[in-house]
Design a protein around this nucleic acid. Structure first.
Lengths: 132, 132
DNA sequence: TGAGTAATTGAACAACTACTCATATTAGCG
DNA sequence: CGCTAATATGAGTAGTTGTTCAATTACTCA
């Protein structure tokens, strides 16, 4: 936001036949306030998406979402072709991103999906097959 | 999937008091088939998330989702602090990921969100504020 | 057809990521 | 306590990404 608006001015001229400074201003303001509809915690949204944008982490979430229940780390690890450490890192990142929750019981650790993860997975499945 | 299962065996012993090979097998199979509930186009899911996991791209999607209508590239560009080229790359990546659709009219290009993008944004907003 | 404009594309490179290996933490048990 | 097991954490590094700059395409109109 601090860019050249000559192209936008020409665009408005194209639409309306003419264009004064005030119109460019008004259009920009309207766009900016649309942009401001973006929630404050945009950063955490981006983090959630970024965290799901990796096959190992995404598959862990799908597994736990399908399970509809918590699972122990030792149940999850054998399903993946990466090291135990990599799975542990993945679980930890997912938890930090608010996509998984953890429970300890002795030396075992159980993970389950959060509401956020469930909603995102559901949103994806809802549009699956649609071509738009 | 091809990992050590000694830990899983001990886990089952812990739960049930004892554990034979068949039980370990059965447990693993159950977990594997949960894993197989993961859709085939998992890769495109990961791509969608990865693409939203960047602030520039995410904010473009939020903007267009809030607009509930198409917008010309020249309207979008001035709102962002990156180069025109970066916005164009972002729009292109989002389109490839199935999150935006494009329409040409003369030299102007219009972009709008797809159903997939709308659903994902909505899923996020639906859980906003929840602490789980 | 040629000048001018909107948008896209490709190359280059600093910044970031995802994994592995080694080590640390935490818990149960003799 | 000291041993072992389950998981987590940190450092290192090969590979990936996001941006910019420069060049290109695609369209309009005189």
């Amino acid at each position: 936001m601090a860019q050249d608006t000559t192209r936008l001015r020409r665009f408005i001229e194209d639409e309306t036949g003419s264009c004064c400074d005030a119109e460019v201003e008004a259009r920009l303001d309207a766009l900016v306030s649309l942009g401001e509809a973006i929630p404050d915690d945009c950063e955490s949204d981006v983090t959630a998406f970024k965290t799901l944008g990796n096959e190992t982490r995404y598959r862990i979430v799908r597994l736990l979402a399908a399970a509809e229940d918590e699972r122990c780390v030792c149940e999850i690890t054998p399903l993946f072709d990466v090291s135990e450490s990599a799975v542990s890192h993945a679980l930890s990142d997912l938890t930090d991103a608010g996509l998984l929750a953890r429970r300890k019981e002795g030396t075992w650790r159980y993970y389950r999906t959060t509401e956020l993860a469930d909603q995102l997975v559901e949103a994806l499945d809802a549009t699956r097959g649609d071509n738009e």
